[in-house]
Amino acid sequence: MAAIEVQNFSYIYPGESEAALRNIHFEVEAGQLFAILGANGAGKSTLCLALAGLIPHLFHGEMNGNVTVLGMNTLKYGPSELAGKVGLVLQNPANQLSGMRYTVYEEVAFGLENLGVPSIQMPERIKKALSWVGLSELGDRSPYALSGGQQQRLALASVLALEPQVLILDEPTAMLDPKGSQEIFEIIHKLTQMGKTVIIAEHRLEWVACHADRMLVLKEGEAILQGKPAQVMTLPLLKEIGIGWLRYTEAAYLGKKRNLWLEDMPLPVTLEQAVVGFLRV
């Protein structure tokens, strides 16, 4: 059974007439890195919230279809039940701090306390989570004295301490500088190597192209493309909906016309593929 199954899922926010998402249908196998692409307002965040059970439990609205995560249907199981199994990281690092804890160490403990984890188990889980994100030395610092990138890593650690099998990230690097973004991407890569299932909604296509196993492209609430990065990110449709191509793809496409790229070679989506391709000629 797939880790995540979304079947004919549609959703309308309360008080609105247009559906935010229509007939979304896809599956994610355990241990995969699955990317969600789309222009602003296409519905990426809504989909992330639905995968975490926050829709329909916190956002009442109108939901149709099924979202099943780790065998649990979100119509029945909400964020309280999913908390130790599904983690969610949002865009704004500062908003994810509980505001209740004065040190990084205690901040990570917040979720563990809520879920009733015995206190003797806490120190080890906290240390593990902090080491996964590289914040082990900053345990005594105030969460509000961290940089944006560090705060985002703290948000990630706080969620990882609950040891979820599925991790959802909604544009986690949107508010970070390149260094902060790189740190986050490295951690996510580590997590997939540990066998976790990761869903990421992202704008930064380069990283996603290298690392995603499969992806979904949204346009105005509908899933218009699904597949592997090499397939999806070379389709002209991406340019029409405002996401665009990577420069490697663009370069190879233009190169094709001038015989700088072999006719039967697929268009590249990573730097390595581009290099290999151009060298062939």
Binding site: P79, S80, A83, G84, Q96
Partner: peptide, 10 residues
């Protein structure tokens, strides 16, 4: 966003 982050941490 704050409310969501709280919920997700149980």
């Amino acid at each position: 966003e704050r409310a969501l982050a709280l919920e997700v941490r149980g």
